[in-house]
Design a protein around this nucleic acid. Structure first.
Lengths: 198, 198
DNA sequence: GTCTATACGAAGATAGAC
DNA sequence: GTCTATCTTCGTATAGAC
């Protein structure tokens, strides 16, 4: 038992909520997974209720999400000076790849959201605004690339939405249907996307 | 009470399973929504158990899905003779629009799948193969368009996967975050997609 | 075919020993 | 801080009256 019990309970909750949903997860399940005796009320020495744990877990994942985004996006909007078209492609590829990685890391939160959005209460609004912020940032970046003549001019908002839809759709698909030999790799998808945009 | 009770129970189950999941839905909920007294066991005069209803409901939606696909895709792979590039664009737009409509109609099954895939047992495999069949059909169509010189040549499989990801991602996004004035309409999305492909 | 009433078990939650 | 034991609530499911 390396980490303390409260920590293990949160980790267990995260996994189980994403797998079986809030209603489908019992406190006994959580105790068992955290190394406690299932059915003993030991859980309640650490959290007031199952719902309380749920909120704590979701909030923490949300904070992690924010941190990941902050890290991925340094405060200064790096504008490469005199960038070539190739640079733009590389930058876009990196950005798309980063988004997929983030989605992977945050997969559990993603799953919890799609499953128990209604149980999340106000936290749901935070997720939504975070999502919209990311979309706005993407729109802005695409707009700049267009103005710089690095990619053809189109409706930047529609394009941003399309790209985000693609990445999220791909992510969710590979989550639901985990085809063993994935027919189209993330690299292939991104390459196609870049090819189309530029 | 226009339709008979069994029918109303199935309808109620469909709605509630997609909203709150299998575990989150109680038989009493279902009874109430079907116009029966909640808590009376009247449900059990029509179905052996909650799980039994779940299977029946999912199977019926699956059959509807198949029927929708069959209707949307006439048996003869209509190959327009001497088609212009404009024709190809129109055909693609119609196809994408059709896909979004289907996803909308089948939204509840979609939600149930993403929520309770594990509870679906062998039905899940049927959904997956259906999904893959649709993807293969799309790949084939794109390949033909490329060979006919109507759209630029690319990896048809990657392109098909990308398009499908986009449509599903868009659909799920607008489901989860129902922004009232949708920032990018389905038409905008499709237009962007077509613009990029051709 | 729906109701009231109820048996039964599963799950949430608490008390108190160690 | 975890355990055993227990209480309570709720949900599944059945029995039998109407």
């Amino acid at each position: 038992m390396a980490r303390d019990t409260r920590e293990r309970l949160m980790e267990a909750g995260l996994v189980l909520f994403s797998r079986k949903g809030l209603a489908g997860t019992t406190v006994s399940d959580i105790e068992a997974r955290a190394g406690l005796r299932a059915g003993s009320g030991s859980f309640y020495r650490h959290f007031a209720s199952k719902d309380a744990l749920f909120e704590v877990v979701v909030r923490r994942e949300l904070d992690r999400y924010r941190a990941t985004i902050r890290d991925a996006e340094p405060d200064s909007p790096r504008e490469p000076r005199e960038p070539g078209v190739a640079d733009a492609k590389v930058a876009l590829a990196l950005e798309f790849h980063q988004t997929l990685t983030t989605l992977d890391q945050l997969g559990r939160l993603e799953t919890i959201i799609s499953r128990d959005a209604r149980a999340m209460g106000t936290l749901f609004d935070e997720v939504e605004s975070l999502y919209n912020a990311a979309l706005d940032a993407s729109t802005h970046r695409l707009d700049q690339l267009m103005k710089a003549g690095q990619i053809p001019r189109r409706d930047p908002q529609a394009l941003a939405e399309m790209i985000r839809s693609t990445l999220i759709g791909y992510h969710l698909n590979t989550q639901s249907f985990r085809r063993s030999p994935r027919r189209v790799s993330p690299a292939d998808l991104i390459a196609t996307l870049i090819d189309l945009i530029s």
